[in-house]
C-alpha cells in the first residue's frame, strides 16, 4: 500500500516537472512569429543536408552552354556566368553559412562567458584588464575589426569564422560580467561559501546556470549577426576561395551582372542570407519573451508549511 503511494508520488512529481518544461515549449510554439523563424531555419538546414539529393546539378562544375539563363523550370533560380545552377549553389552554400554562424557564436559564447564570469567574480586587476581589452574590441566597428582579423590570418573559411567569433566575444563578456556582478552578491552564493565550496565551484555550478537565460537569447540573436558578418567577409574575398558555393561569395561574383540585367545571380543568394538571419532573429525574439519572467505570470505553486 505504502509502496503504491510512494510510486504515485514519484510519478506525480516527475510529471509536474514535465509540465514545467512543456510549458516553456508551449509558450514558444504559441508565438507565431518565432514559429515562422523556426520553420525558416528548418528549411535551410534541410536544404543544406539534402542538397545532393534535391538537385541533379553540380554546384562547382561549369556548364558553359547554359550560362546566364534566367529562372525557368529546369533552373528554378537561373544560372550564373559559368552556367552553374543558382538553386543548387544556394542549397550547398547553406551548409557553410549556417555552420559558420553557429560555430562562430558557439566559440564567442564559450570564451565570452568564461571571461565575463571571471572578470565579474574575481574583479580586481584581472577583471579590469579583461573588461578594458573588451572595450578596445568594441571601439572598432564589428565589420572592420573582422576584416582586419581575417586578413591578418589569411583568407579562408576558418579564418573568417575565427574573425567572426572574436568580434562577437565582447558582447558575451559584458553580459556575463553584469550577470555575475549581480549574482555574486546573492545570499545563495554566500551560503555556498559558508558550506565551504571552492570559488570555482560557486562560479561555475551556482552562478553560471543562473546567468544563462539572457546569454542564450543573446546567442540566438547573435547567430543572425554572425551570418551577416561572415557573409560580408566572404563577399569581400576574405573567406572561401572560388569555386566553393557560399552566399556572400556568390553575390560578389554576380555583382558585375546586375547592370546588364542578370538580377537572379545576386538576388537569390541575398534572399537566402536575409531569410536565414530573419529566422534566427525571430527565434531569438520568441525565446527572449518566453525566458523573461517579467512577461510571464509566476506559475510556481507554493506549499504551506
Amino acid at each position: 500500500m505504502e509502496k503504491i503511494a510512494a510510486t504515485a508520488l514519484v510519478s506525480q512529481s516527475s510529471s509536474e516537472q514535465e509540465r514545467k518544461s512543456v510549458g516553456i515549449i508551449r509558450l514558444l510554439t504559441s508565438n507565431r512569429l518565432s514559429m515562422i523563424g523556426l520553420l525558416l531555419i528548418i528549411v535551410w538546414i534541410a536544404l543544406a543536408l539534402l542538397a545532393p539529393l534535391l538537385s541533379p546539378y553540380s554546384p562547382i562544375e561549369p556548364d558553359v552552354a547554359n550560362k546566364l539563363t534566367p529562372p525557368s523550370v529546369s533552373h528554378w533560380f537561373g544560372t550564373d556566368n559559368f552556367g552553374r545552377d543558382i538553386f543548387t549553389r544556394i542549397a550547398y552554400g547553406a551548409k557553410y553559412t549556417i555552420w559558420s554562424g553557429v560555430a562562430a557564436v558557439a566559440i564567442s559564447f564559450c570564451v565570452g562567458t568564461i571571461l565575463g564570469a571571471i572578470a565579474g567574480y574575481y574583479g580586481g586587476v584581472l577583471g579590469s584588464i579583461i573588461m578594458r581589452v573588451m572595450d578596445m574590441f568594441l571601439a572598432f566597428p564589428a565589420l572592420v575589426l573582422a576584416m582586419a582579423i581575417a586578413a591578418s590570418i589569411g583568407p579562408g573559411l576558418t579564418s573568417a569564422m575565427i574573425a567572426v567569433s572574436v568580434v562577437g566575444i565582447p558582447e558575451y563578456v559584458r553580459l556575463m560580467y553584469g550577470q555575475t556582478m549581480l549574482l555574486r552578491e546573492k545570499e545563495f552564493v554566500e551560503a555556498g561559501r559558508a558550506i565551504g565550496l571552492k570559488n570555482s565551484v560557486i562560479l561555475f555550478r551556482h552562478i553560471l546556470p543562473n546567468a544563462l537565460a539572457p546569454l542564450i537569447v543573446r546567442a540566438t540573436l547573435g547567430i543572425g549577426f554572425a551570418i551577416l558578418i561572415s557573409s560580408s567577409l566572404n563577399f569581400l574575398g576574405l573567406g572561401v576561395k572560388p569555386p566553393i558555393a557560399e552566399w556572400g561569395a556568390m553575390i560578389a561574383e554576380g555583382r558585375q551582372y546586375i547592370v546588364s540585367g542578370e538580377w537572379w545571380i545576386v538576388s537569390f543568394p541575398g534572399l537566402a542570407i536575409a531569410t536565414s538571419i530573419l529566422g534566427f532573429n525571430l527565434i531569438g525574439d520568441g525565446l527572449r519573451d518566453v525566458l523573461d519572467p517579467r512577461l510571464r505570470s509566476s506559475s510556481g505553486n507554493k506549499k504551506n508549511d
Binding site: 546573492k186 545570499e187 545563495f188 554566500e190 551560503a191 555556498g192 559558508a194 558550506i195 565551504g196 565550496l197
Partner: peptide, 17 residues
C-alpha cells in the same frame, strides 16, 4: 567551514540557489 562550523542565514527566500 560548513563541516565543523556551519551557518544559517537570515533570508531563507534567497539563500537557496
Amino acid at each position: 567551514r560548513g563541516n565543523r562550523i556551519a551557518m544559517i542565514f537570515q533570508e531563507p527566500m534567497t539563500s537557496l540557489n
